[in-house]
Simulated assay, not measured.
Amino acid sequence: MSEDVSTASSVRSIDGPVERATHWLVLGGNRIAVSGVLVAAVVAFFFPLARFGVLAIGPDSAAASAFASGLISGTVTLVTIALSINQLVLSRVFGSPNELSSQLGGTRDLRGRVREHAGESAAPNDPAEFLDLVAETLAERADRLGSAVENAAGGPPREVEEYAEGIAAYGESITAKIESQTAIVNVLEVVLGTEYARNMTATEYVRNEYGDRLSEEADAELDAIDDLLGAIAITRQFFKTLSLQQDFARLSRVVAYSGLVALAASVSLALVYRPDSVTVPAQHLPVVFSLGVGVVVAPLTVFIAYVFRAATIARHTVSVGPFVPPEERSD
């Protein structure tokens, strides 16, 4: 096969503690847990500064006005933004009967093509099981292509054999990493890389370079592989839509809850301060101040945690087909 065209025999893997930690932070981790880590980092940052007097938090400081005005207005603004996002999500799920029928027809067409290639009576409804069926069928069709090429007269082209082996390994690697009944975002993670695009390009190369030397059986298997790779490209975009809609719906709800708590905390902390004293012992004020700041910034950390994942998914799913931006390849 050409030096510039090759198959991707495996989906990407996350290796090393730094990569795993980064992956957990921006994509794989539970968003509430990520938000909790960010809140803990904020508290850990402010406590020593307040404890050793780097920050002025006494009765004569600006802490009271900060809690009473700036943080309250910031919390209200953030909650408003989250609710606006919720309205945007709702607008995406509405549609006329014609639009909804078109969406349903497209989904049924995709499921029907996969079902025919797999030889099944019905395609599964669970996203993980559906992608698993696509991957298993892809590996099976690649094995059939390899067998058809081996049995061809005149000897098989070595490049086609390598192609079939690479595609089969790619399908098997997807199957190995998928867990049934898992969250959509976890299913999406498996096919978030650019491997599908490399394999689509390799399929195009094999068809144009060796298509006239393949038997009808091998050509049919190559058509099925091409269609299944296209199904992976479409499926990952559809799963991206579902995942982001679910995340933004959860985001608006969690920000509304945490925003109410943050607002109450801001008011409470503002009332702790008197003109010349505070209502808590001075030795406890650094702890109260640091924990209060952590509670107040909780809606922001929730927002950041969900934006991390949304931005990461959007960055890695820019392209629907074999056109892959350089930034996505470098990631």
Rank of each mutant, 00 (worst) to 15 (best):
P281W: 06
V302S: 09
E99V: 07
I57G: 11
G29S: 06
G112N: 14
R113A: 11
A176D: 15
R31K: 08
L78N: 04
I178R: 09
A311Q: 07
S268G: 15
P322N: 10
Y306V: 10
A176W: 07
G321E: 03
Q87K: 01
A63L: 04
A220P: 04
H117P: 00
E165I: 11
R158F: 00
L229G: 08
E116S: 12
L271K: 09
T75V: 15
S121K: 08
N151R: 11
A256N: 01
T203L: 00
V318W: 05
G74C: 03
Q237I: 04
P127V: 07
L100V: 09
P127S: 01
N199Y: 01
R253Y: 07
Q246V: 11
L55E: 11
L244W: 00
I14L: 01
V54T: 14
A123V: 06
R253H: 06
E179H: 13
V187D: 11
Q246R: 10
S35H: 03
D109C: 01
G95W: 01
T7V: 13
Q237V: 02
D60E: 15
F238T: 11
V272A: 08
L71W: 11
D15E: 14
V261H: 01
L27T: 08
V114W: 06
I57H: 08
S65T: 15
R92I: 00
E328S: 11
M1E: 14
T235D: 05
R213M: 09
A40N: 07
D223N: 13
P325Q: 04
G211S: 05
P59Y: 09
V149H: 01
A135S: 10
S147V: 13
K177W: 02
T137L: 05
E116Q: 12
L214Y: 08
L138E: 09
V79M: 12
A197K: 05
E189V: 06
P17K: 04
E136H: 09
E120H: 07
A41K: 05
F303W: 14
S277E: 08
A183I: 09
E204I: 04
P157H: 03
V39K: 04
A148V: 06
A249S: 15
T137Q: 04
V76P: 05
N151S: 14
Q181P: 00
D219H: 09
A202M: 03
S96M: 02
Q283H: 13
A220D: 15
A153K: 06
L145M: 14
L55D: 11
V255Q: 02
V149Q: 02
S147A: 14
T7M: 05
G292K: 08
F46D: 12
R274C: 02
P275M: 06
V160W: 02
A282L: 10
V190M: 06
Y170E: 06
A264L: 15
R12D: 12
Q283T: 15
R144E: 12
E162I: 03
A233Y: 04
A249L: 06
D132M: 11
G16R: 06
A66Q: 13
D227H: 04
A63F: 05
G294S: 07
V79T: 10
M1P: 10
V149I: 10
N98E: 13
V185M: 03
L269Y: 09
P17E: 08
E209D: 09
A264T: 15
A164G: 02
V302T: 08
V288Y: 11
V76D: 07
L100R: 13
P17G: 00
